[in-house]
């Protein structure tokens, strides 16, 4: 148990963290490069810039979504706030960082009460999101299986972390809980850049890519005509 914990804290953490950071950078790089590539190939290189901008900001700050589905939008925003702020500004994490690299956000870390509150908020809103997705017919139809798994997986480290911080228990129980906490978080780290959670960095590019890529490539129609052996024939 202790060895496993040491391994999860040390090499495994470094591995997953490095892959997450680099993987996210890679995603951004690929998005930009592929977008530019698409521009090179396209016959029509114009895009509706205004519309792309509007949609992008609309996704980053979903104010408009309040008009259509206010409850879903609110829960979603709360979930994201808890998700981002709690792990980064938690005091215990700052302490670990401080020991490892002698740099941390310790001075602006959360107090225990607010951290607990945010954690509870994240857990509840995460579960609510899954329920809401399942409850509405349209979103259920559009969802894949993984869409239900990701929010639940993300909630796991929050639950185990909350238990570790608050419940009084035997050292063995504590170790087991902290192991679940660490391993589940590392699982998220490592799949993050290779799954749809990568939207955390790809969101600003998604609309631009869509607008860039959905074009006919230059000379595309002619190639089709040639391939079908219908050159010179009327369509």
């Amino acid at each position: 148990m202790d060895n496993l914990l040491e391994f999860a804290k040390g090499p495994l953490f470094r591995l997953t963290f490095a892959i997450m950071i680099l993987g996210l950078i890679r995603m951004v790089g690929l998005a930009i490069m592929n977008g530019l590539e698409a521009k090179k190939l396209a016959s029509d290189t114009t895009i509706a810039k205004k519309y792309v901008r509007k949609l992008t900001f609309g996704f980053i700050l979903p104010i408009r979504a309040f008009r259509t589905r206010p409850l879903y939008a609110a829960v979603s925003i709360l979930f994201h706030i808890g998700l981002l702020i709690t792990p980064v500004f938690l005091f215990d994490h700052s302490l670990l960082f401080d020991r490892a690299v002698n740099f941390s956000l310790m001075d602006i870390s959360l107090s225990k009460e607010s951290a607990d509150m945010l954690t509870m908020l994240t857990i509840i809103s995460g579960i609510l999101l899954v329920i809401m997705r399942a409850a509405t017919k349209t979103s259920r139809f559009l969802s894949r299986r993984q869409d239900f798994v990701w929010p639940l997986l993300i909630v796991v480290p929050f639950i185990s972390g909350f238990i570790c911080a608050n419940a009084a228990m035997s050292p063995d129980g504590y170790n087991a809980a902290i192991l679940v906490h660490i391993l589940s978080a590392e699982l998220i780290f490592i799949i993050l850049p290779f799954s749809k959670i990568a939207h955390c960095v790809l969101l600003p590019f998604s609309q631009w890519i869509t607008a860039r890529s959905w074009k006919f490539i230059a000379k595309g129609p002619e190639d089709v005509v040639i391939a079908l052996n219908k050159e010179g024939k009327p369509l």
Binding site: R14, A18, I19, R26, P193
Partner: peptide, 8 residues
């Protein structure tokens, strides 16, 4: 990315 992470 994978090679970097494993080595690191």
């Amino acid at each position: 990315v994978i090679a970097f992470g494993v080595t690191f």
